[in-house]
Structure formats: C-alpha cells, structure tokens
Simulated assay, not measured.
Amino acid sequence: MNARCAFLLAGLLFAGAASAGDAEHVAASRGWIRVMPGALPAGGYVVLENHGDHAVSLRSASSPAYADVMLHRSSTDTGMGRMESVDALPIPAHGKAALSPGGYHLMLMKAAAPVKVGDKVRVTLRFADGSTLDTEFEAKPANTVDGGDMPEMHHH
C-alpha cells in the first residue's frame, strides 16, 4: 500500500468517526459477493442489524474495487424475474434487513481489477444521514447459493 493510499484511507476513517450517526447503530455481518465470469456485475449480499432506537435507511454503497455500486431489488411479483434499482433499504429499529439473492442486493459493476474467489473486498455503506459503515465482503464462487456457510465449518 503506498503512502498516498494509506493517507487517503486514514482520512476516510477519520471522516467516518467524526460523523457519528446512523452507521454506528448498524452492525454488518456475513458480507459476500458472488463473483461472475468476465465483466459481468457481481452481486453483493450482507445482513444489516440496527441496534438503534429509530429506523435507518441504507441509501448507497461504494467500493474501491468497483467503478459503480448500485442498490437493487429483485422482484418476481409478475412471475418474471426482474431487477429494479432502489433508492433506499429501510432497516427497522432493533431489527434487521438482509441483502440476499432474490431480494435486495448490491450490484457491483466494472471491477477495477479482476476479483477472485477468496478475495476480501471493502464496501462502504452510506446511510440516509450521510454516515458510513465500512464492511468487508468475501468473494465467493458464482454457484454459491447462500453466503451463510461460515468458513470455520471447513476443518479437515
């Protein structure tokens, strides 16, 4: 990591700490992305838990590993699978919201460099009040059904 990058990172972390807001009440867990072949967009999934007393709203996300990250929802109300972009994902007070295959998810587009299975990708989640939460997503194979298979299960 070069000095400029480290400096930028320190600046980002400081900025995040300065704006104590919705993000500090939210815990992210089980973040993973489905790595697709070629230049196809990857899907990002995570479980967000809100420990605060008021509902918060996830508005957007960004990642240094991808040029563009969008919040999407898959809907199959018409029996046709389609995706629509959404402006916000509400997380109820003392509740949780899951970004999962077939529901809300992040679309990570135009990888800066090829993301390989096993890579850790940093994603910054931004909430309605402007506060941010840095989350680590693990890259998993395209055929993963649910990222919930925790790695500690695989002891040989």
Rank of each mutant, 00 (worst) to 15 (best):
M1L: 11
G44A: 12
M36N: 11
K110I: 05
G118Q: 10
R59W: 03
V121P: 00
G147P: 02
V117R: 04
E136I: 12
I33L: 15
R82E: 14
N2V: 08
Y66L: 04
S75A: 13
S100H: 06
A112K: 14
T124E: 09
G148Q: 08
D22C: 03
D149L: 11
R73Y: 09
G44W: 04
P151Q: 10
G147D: 07
V145Q: 13
T135P: 00
V46H: 01
D77A: 15
K120Y: 04
T144S: 13
S74C: 08
H72F: 11
G52K: 06
H72M: 15
V115F: 05
L12G: 01
K116D: 09
G21H: 05
G21N: 09
Y104N: 07
H155P: 00
T78N: 15
A55G: 09
A23T: 03
F127A: 06
D53Y: 01
V115G: 01
D68Y: 07
F14T: 14
N50H: 05
L71C: 05
A112E: 13
A23Y: 00
E49D: 13
F127M: 07
P37C: 14
S19D: 11
M83F: 14
L9M: 06
L133W: 03
G130C: 13
S29Y: 06
T78C: 05
V35G: 00
G52T: 06
A55C: 02
L99T: 02
S57Q: 12
E24K: 15
V115K: 00
R122D: 09
L108I: 11
V145T: 14
C5Q: 12
T124M: 04
A28K: 00
D53F: 02
M150N: 09
A27T: 15
T135K: 00
A18W: 07
G148E: 13
G38N: 15
G44F: 06
M1I: 06
A88Y: 04
D134W: 01
E136S: 08
H25E: 08
A20P: 02
V56R: 01
E49M: 12
V86P: 01
T124K: 04
G16C: 11
G95N: 08
S74N: 10
S75M: 13
G102W: 09
T78G: 10
V86M: 08
F127C: 02
T135M: 04
M83Y: 10
A42W: 03
T76F: 13
V47Y: 02
T76Y: 12
P151L: 11
R82C: 03
S100C: 02
G43E: 10
D87W: 08
A42K: 03
D87S: 14
T76L: 15
H156A: 14
M153T: 05
A111K: 03
A23I: 05
A111C: 07
H156Y: 07
M1K: 05
R73I: 04
A61G: 04
L71G: 02
G95Q: 09
A6F: 06
S100T: 10
V69D: 01
G38K: 12
L9C: 07
A39R: 11
A18E: 10
L125T: 01
D134L: 06
S85M: 12
D87K: 08
T78W: 06
H51F: 15
L40W: 09
M107N: 10
A10N: 09
D22P: 01
H156R: 12
A111F: 02
P101T: 11
A142V: 11
A61Q: 02
M1G: 15
K140M: 15
V46M: 05
L13G: 02
K96L: 14
P64K: 04
H94L: 10
L125C: 04
A42Q: 10
